[in-house]
Write a protein that binds this DNA or RNA. Structure first.
Length: 367
DNA sequence: AACACGGGGGG
DNA sequence: CCCCCAGTGTT
């Protein structure tokens, strides 16, 4: 199994940027970006990220807004914040170097058992097993494991198998060592042993694959999906004043933490336009009146199927809490379109910015 | 063990 | 539309 897989990999491996230069720093960044994200999606982000932050210290010193801006569109934004925290930890505790031991790597934020094993094996050719979406599927099919791979017993068997398959013989040749094997197993899952319609006819190990022999390749791994898709309707509000728009910084601990967003809410805070007006007035002080609907944005993300109504709005400050020219409530600010361009936003937030940046803009200035 | 994570690609 | 993706951290 191992030899056939390695031979196949040496002939079919994709030319990925973290394979050309496999320093721990680069492999780390690539692994974090690849979490729950397809390789093809990662590529442009990886190159840009490495150009902006070529070293651990550059990343540790990064401006948080710029860092989040670099991550915009990749999703799972906590990954970017964990990267930053981990880089700072490396500067403080490891003299700015990437830690060498598995346990020290595992102790970094955002790094679990898979990622620690991937870094140690791919970067340093050390014998640590990995288990992720690809290898879970490849190994399950190979041994004919019919229990869903998410179950505890399946996880235990798969980790054990991943470890047992690892080349132990100390090899200077990365391609025949843990670096080669772990990447080969993942690559097989990505290119051949795909979730649906696996290309068993092109698979180097089909003849010794339990699932293939029994014709179970479409039934293994078993159904994992427990996700309940949820339709959500939310309202966002564009409030302008002298070519500036009202936005806020999302606080720690909630979704979009550290990013910038237009006033936005959905159930239970705001069920409709009237609910939005009162919710936003409660946030800002004064009165808020929503105007015409500029656009409705449909956006599917993770398990949510969102419909976002974007309205114009007016904010009349007439309470004692906030004077007309006084300080903004905490975390809120006025920003121009140019300023918004450099701020990190969700994909839907960025779509709203693009609405402002177009011909319709003249439409606003008359309102 | 179950859930959140708020992006995108592919069938 | 549904499922999956080089998973991790939290409850």
């Amino acid at each position: 199994m191992r030899k056939r897989l390695l031979t196949w990999f040496s002939d079919n491996a994709r030319d990925l940027p973290w394979r050309r230069d496999h320093s721990p720093y680069r492999v780390w960044i690539s692994e974090i970006m690849c979490q729950q994200t397809q390789v093809a999606t990662v590529l442009p982000y990886f190159e840009r990220f490495l150009s902006t932050y070529p070293t651990i210290r550059n990343l540790a010193d990064a401006d948080e807004n710029q860092l989040m801006r670099m991550w915009e569109g990749l999703g799972y934004y906590r990954r970017a914040r964990s990267l930053h925290a981990a880089a700072k930890k490396m500067v403080e505790e490891h003299d700015g170097e990437f830690p060498e031991s598995f346990d020290d790597v595992l102790a970094l934020p955002g790094i679990g058992r898979y990622t620690a094993g991937a870094i140690q094996s791919i970067s340093r050719n050390q014998a640590f097993p990995i288990l992720e979406g690809n290898t879970q599927r490849v190994f399950s099919r190979w041994i004919g494991l019919t229990v869903p791979p998410t179950e505890k017993i399946a996880q235990a068997r798969l980790w054990e198998l991943s470890d047992k398959m690892l080349p132990r013989r100390k090899s200077d040749d990365r391609s025949n060592g843990p670096a080669g094997f772990n990447q080969a197993a993942m690559e097989l899952g990505a290119l051949i042993c795909s979730p649906r319609s696996p290309k068993c006819g092109e698979c180097p190990v089909a003849t010794i694959c339990h699932a293939n022999q029994q014709g179970l390749q479409d039934d293994i791994p078993g159904k994992i999906s427990k996700v309940q898709y949820e339709s959500r309707t939310e309202i966002a509000v564009v409030i302008s004043r002298d070519d500036r728009y009202l936005v806020r910084t999302i606080p720690e601990g909630v979704r979009f933490a550290g990013m910038i967003d237009f006033p936005r809410a959905g159930p239970p805070e705001a069920d409709d336009v009237v609910g939005m007006e009162s919710w936003l007035a409660g946030q800002l002080g004064g009165d808020v009146t929503l105007g015409m609907r500029l656009k409705t944005i449909k956006h599917a993300v993770t398990r949510y199927r969102m419909t976002l109504h974007v309205h114009l709005g007016e904010w009349n400050v007439n309470s004692d809490r906030v004077a007309e020219d006084g300080p903004m409530p905490d975390s809120w600010q006025w920003a121009t379109v140019d300023e918004l361009a450099d701020m990190p936003m969700s994909v839907t937030g960025r779509k709203i910015v693009r609405l402002l940046d177009r011909p319709q803009r003249s439409l606003f200035s008359e309102l």
